[in-house]
Structures are given as structure tokens and as C-alpha cells.
Design a protein around this nucleic acid. Structure first.
Length: 418
RNA sequence: GUGAGUGUAGCUCAAAUGGUUAGAGUACCUGACUGUGGCUCAGGAUGCUGUGGGUUCAAUUCCCAUCACUCACCCCA
């Protein structure tokens, strides 16, 4: 393979047709569904002040400590390519003084530094929704259902949902200490990472996959057992709302998630077809985040879904949107201008049209039409010119007939219909 | 950031234990078909074997380094 001067940066990807079209299909499906649930699109910057992420996701979180693309701009401002969606959305909602409650969805690229592997990229596509100002557990349930609905509509059947509650300001501090004590008593079983987590955020030990840590956690009290009355009631209502909808879900006491801003409900969608990165998406409630940004006390809950993983898990790649193209073919130099004029005329009528201006021979033009996956060809030669007609050929069936100029557009549209 | 595996034609892959001119399928181009694609047949073009170094009479093959990709750890989308 001859060496190219430029190659794409590690962890990025090119989407060439038809993959680009498939991806847009999935995005379109998401936009449609989000709109069905009352969400409207918010578009925020791809980079933010670094503090936006540090303050919301947590100084000690892995995302912040080792996965951010941070840089200084020419005026020495600390900026970061967004590693996740929620902080930017909350910041923007406050900055624009959006009236609450408000439901927002987003679609776009996100960035995290890390070794790429199956389903993990440095630049990745993510879609998500955020419900700001809604406190009801029914909203948590609706959002969990929304994600499951999305996957179901894409034909992803092996998706399972795990749900947990990690408590609130009232019950978490006491629980955290109880947990810390329990883990401290068996600290010889913990790995080096978990010893650090024990200090910073003992809940994170639940995420550890090291066998001895898992055992330690097995014997430790779970957040679930230590919820205050309000949290317990909230959680019960979330679960029962899911059950009422017929959404199968599994309780997972160790599901705490890596971002610091979550409280109460956390959830995650898992798929077996993704490899080691088995999470399709996840989310949770964040009732203190808006306040942390200096806004009024405002509850919030949201979900984020990975686009690449969704594409991976979809059993059949979503078909690219049906696309139609008319290819205008000329025979001799004398008809080339006429071909170009016809293409322009068709485009004016909203019909996609293309001409191979370079080809010397008819055969080459037909091949170009095939390569472009055209629906039909319109041939202009001396005979057609003399008779003031066009020869219209359906490339799928091979049928060809002469069509008068004034009914050509209608005839092409008829071919485009199926 | 740590580890393992893999780098040969545009693509998918061959080339016993080092051996002389690196092959096949597919895609591509040309012709059979001087105004008709997809099928068939015939012909044609294509490689600094990822890069740099080393061992050897000889390296696609062995060794070292480096880069890239893949998978896993980690983390999560």
C-alpha cells in the first residue's frame, strides 16, 4: 500500500457513502422520536470552558482527569472539546434563561481521549435528551422507556435495561460513610485504584471489575438498602411505572455511573453484541446540577446514547434513505450542451440529475450511471433531437421508450415513485 | 496510559521449514458490442511486501525499533 501523506487522526472515523447515509438515518430516527416525546433540539458549542466539565462531572472523575481534550486558545483561555452532553446543555439553558420546565435533545460529536477499540472512538457520535425542571419519577421512567423505545424501533432486541438509585443529599452522605467503613474493613481485598476511590468517592468501587473488589462490594451495604424514605418512594415509583409500561428491567445495585452529578435514578442500556464496550447508553437524574451552575434549584434527568454502538448493535444496518437520480446521456458533442440544459431543467423541478461530461463513449456514460446508482437514463442523440423527444431508460428493468419533452418530468417522477 | 495480535495490488487473501520473475479472486481499464449499463468471453494495467535498521551469499519470511490498525485492560457512548 503506497503511503499516504495524510491519514485520519487516531480514534476518528470517516463515514463514506452509504455508511454516512445509514448514520444519518439513525440520527433522523432519533430526532423524530425525541420530538414525539416533546423534546426540541438544542445546539451547543463543540467546546466549552474547561470548568464547565470539571465542576459538573467531578474533579476526580476519570473523564475529567484523563480523558479530556483540553487546550488553551490564543488568548490563554482553558477550553475543552466536550466529552459529554449534559453540562453544556445545562449551561446553555441557564445562559439563555430558558423557561422551565423544558425538554431538550441534542445530536452531535463528542470527544474523549483513550485507546480506541471496538465501539470506542476518540471522536464519537452521541444523541441524548435532557428534561429540565421535572421532578416526577414518572419522568425518569419515561426517559428510560424512551431509550428502550428508540432501540426497539431500530430492531435492537438484545438490549437490556439496568436501573438503580444512588440516593440524594439526605441519605447519601451517611451511606457513603457506612460504605467507606465497610470497605475500609476489608481494604486488603481492594485494588490500588479502589483504594484511591475509597477516599474520593467510595461509590465508584461498585464499578470495579477486579474479582476481589467485587467480592468486597458483595459484602458491603448497597445504596439501595440505605435510601431515605423519599428516595425509596421515588425509586419504587420509577420501577412500577416501568413495569406498568411492560418494560423489562433489572435492578443492579452496583450501577453508580462515573459522573459525579447523578443522584437517585441511574440506568444503563446493555447489549451483548458490542464486545467489551457493552453499554449502548445510559443516564440518570441530576437534581443539583443546575444549582451547581449558579441557577435556581431545578431537578433534571436525561439519557445519552452512543451512535456508533447503536449502529453496531442494530441487527440489520438501517437501509440508506431511498435516493433517486436521473442520468442524462449524450451521444455526440452536438448533444452535450442539450444534456446539460436538460439536467438543469430537471433540477429546477426538484429532480436529481447528473451528466458525465467527460465520457467519450455512451458505454462509459452508462457505467457512470450505474456507479452513481441512478434510477434511469435519459438519452439524447441526433435521432431524439430530430424528433424532439427523449429516450427514457429504466435502469432496473432495462425498458426504454421515447418520451415527448413536455411529459418527461412526469415520466421520470413516475419512475422515482417506486 | 498498559498489554496482546496483525500490517503483501483499490478490496479480500495466498506465497512449507529464508531461495532466484511476489500470485489468485474481486474491483478497475480495453475489446467482442462504430447509439446502450448490469451477464458472458478475450486481453490489459496495478505492488519501494507499513517505515527504518540489523542478521545472511540471499529477507514478504528471522531479529530490533518505529508507525498504523484491531482487540482487550482502564473508562464509558
Amino acid at each position: 500500500m503506497s503511503e499516504l501523506k495524510q491519514s485520519r487522526p487516531k480514534g476518528t472515523q470517516d463515514f463514506v457513502p452509504p455508511d454516512s447515509e445509514r448514520r444519518r438515518q439513525v440520527e433522523a430516527a432519533f430526532r423524530h422520536l425525541a420530538a414525539c416525546y416533546g423534546y426540541r433540539e438544542i445546539i451547543t458549542p463543540t467546546f466549552e470552558h474547561t470548568a464547565v466539565f470539571v465542576k459538573s462531572s467531578g474533579e476526580g472523575s476519570d473523564v475529567v482527569t484523563k480523558e479530556m481534550y483540553s487546550f488553551k486558545d490564543r488568548a490563554e483561555r482553558d477550553l475543552t472539546l466536550r466529552p459529554e452532553g449534559t453540562p453544556g446543555v445545562v449551561r446553555a439553558a441557564l445562559e439563555n434563561r430558558l423557561r422551565l420546565p423544558c425538554r431538550l435533545y441534542y445530536v452531535g460529536p463528542f470527544f474523549r481521549y483513550g485507546r480506541p477499540q471496538k465501539g470506542r472512538f476518540r471522536e464519537f457520535g452521541q444523541v441524548g435528551v435532557e428534561a429540565l425542571g421535572e421532578a416526577s419519577p414518572l419522568v425518569d421512567a419515561e426517559i428510560i422507556y424512551f431509550g428502550a423505545d428508540f432501540f426497539r424501533r431500530l430492531g435492537i432486541s438484545d438490549c437490556t435495561v439496568q436501573v438503580n438509585s444512588i440516593g440524594c443529599r439526605t441519605c447519601r452522605p451517611a451511606y457513603r460513610e457506612t460504605l467507606r467503613k465497610s470497605l475500609f474493613d476489608q481494604k486488603e481485598r481492594l485494588c490500588a485504584d479502589c483504594l484511591v476511590r475509597l477516599e474520593r468517592n467510595p461509590l465508584r468501587v461498585f464499578d470495579c471489575k477486579v474479582e476481589t473488589c467485587r467480592q468486597a462490594v458483595q459484602d458491603a451495604p448497597t445504596p439501595r438498602q440505605h435510601l431515605c424514605a423519599d428516595c425509596e418512594r421515588h425509586h419504587e415509583q420509577v420501577l412500577s411505572a416501568l413495569t406498568r409500561r411492560g418494560l423489562r428491567h433489572a435492578a443492579n445495585d452496583r450501577l453508580v455511573r462515573g459522573l459525579d452529578y447523578y443522584n437517585r435514578t441511574t440506568f444503563e442500556y446493555l447489549s451483548t453484541s458490542l464486545g467489551a464496550q457493552d453499554s449502548l447508553g445510559g443516564g440518570g437524574r441530576y437534581d443539583y446540577l443546575v444549582e451547581d451552575f449558579g441557577g435556581p434549584p431545578t431537578p433534571g434527568v436525561g439519557v445519552a446514547i452512543g451512535l456508533e454502538r447503536t449502529l453496531l448493535a442494530a441487527p440489520v444496518a438501517p437501509a440508506p434513505a431511498r435516493r433517486h437520480l436521473a442520468f442524462v446521456i449524450w451521444l455526440t458533442e452536438a448533444e452535450r450542451a442539450a444534456a446539460q440544459e436538460l439536467a438543469d431543467r430537471l433540477r429546477t423541478d426538484g429532480i436529481a440529475a447528473q451528466v458525465d461530461y467527460d465520457a467519450r463513449k455512451v458505454k462509459g456514460q452508462f457505467r457512470s450511471a450505474d456507479a452513481a446508482e441512478a434510477t434511469c437514463c435519459i438519452i439524447i442523440g441526433p435521432d431524439e433531437l430530430a424528433k424532439s423527444v427523449y429516450s427514457l431508460k429504466d435502469l432496473a428493468t432495462g425498458e426504454q421508450r421515447e418520451v415527448a419533452s413536455d411529459v418527461l418530468v412526469e415520466a421520470v417522477r413516475a419512475l422515482f415513485r417506486d
